[in-house]
Design a binder for these strands. Structure first.
Lengths: 167, 167
DNA sequence: ATAACTGCAAAACATTTGCATACAG
DNA sequence: CTGTATGCAAATGTTTTGCAGTTAT
């Protein structure tokens, strides 16, 4: 079945991602600010996908006072260390999810209700390798989304039940 | 090698896409305005990918007076009849390409110079069918991009030759 | 000390919207 | 005629930026 946004975080994992951020900052001669670690913590306390503004709101709720600018800056930083992954689903805002210790996966999205499923198929890896070979381009990442209409009875935007399904 | 944005348009093809638009408008009881057909023509006169603003600019240059709003509205309309396909590559603006009479393909993008290649692999169709079966979701479309670094000598944004590659 | 980071608000950007006018049916 | 489409400009919503003040090192 579809797993959503990775496993619940463990203490060991939290320590590990903090270490990764810390090392990256050290290597890049950037500062270890409390804001950066607070944002990292909140990202790893979040199950599933989120956007920059949701993350900002969640931080405010918890009393962590950071600005939106810092949230965006820090997300870029975490992107650089692969501690988050960014997706561009619709043409709307970017969504993010934790990037550490979670298998590569792709997304399946219901066009009516926006329900989101995750899947993984090894053939994609094979395609990637073949494309890399043919075009002589070192592929560093990919992004695959499939769009369709889900069968949920309660899918809020389905064409009215019992009618014909002409899209 | 990579084909970019489909074949040169023929008269027969132009007539056919005009017919498709015309039929769609008739079916939806919408008006056959000159703007809509002018935009369709310009889309099909365009080789490769373009964004809404490029299309708008090209129309202005040719003396076709349409507003940006109409360009956006018409692109949505053409999307509905599958006469154009929309892609969301970066997080920047959407890009479009002609959707009629051109095989389904996916994209390979150089992260440095944004050079864009197209490829097609039948295994993707197989993945799509399997995912559809597993999740019981009728898949209507997909979007796959691979990102990497191309080997072009003149790739404008390659890490400077001979230097270290610290980003 | 001092350069990097932050918060704030303004700017930037693509896209959408509201409304008065034009025009296809 | 009549309602749909258009053009214009203002609004929207997300992300970026400039700058003055803070703070990690």
């Amino acid at each position: 079945m579809a797993r959503r946004g990775g496993p619940i975080i463990t203490d060991a994992m939290r320590t590990e991602v903090q270490r990764i951020l810390s090392e990256t900052l050290k290597a890049r001669k950037q500062r270890q600010t409390p804001e950066r670690f607070a944002i990292l913590d909140e990202v790893y306390a979040t199950v599933g996908h989120f956007d920059a503004d949701e993350l900002y709101a969640r931080l405010q709720e918890k009393g962590v006072r950071v600005s939106r600018a810092t949230v965006y800056n820090t997300l870029d930083l975490l992107l650089d260390c692969n501690l988050v992954v960014r997706h561009q689903f619709g043409s709307k805002q970017a969504t993010y999810e934790r990037g550490y210790s979670y298998r590569q996966h792709d997304h399946l999205i219901c066009l009516d209700c926006e329900e989101l499923f995750e899947f993984c198929d090894p053939r994609l890896q094979a395609i990637q390798e073949m494309v890399q070979e043919i075009y002589q381009i070192g592929i560093t990442s990919h992004s695959l989304q499939m769009y369709g209409n889900c069968m949920r009875e309660n899918c809020p935007n389905r064409p009215a039940a019992g009618r014909d399904s002409t899209a």
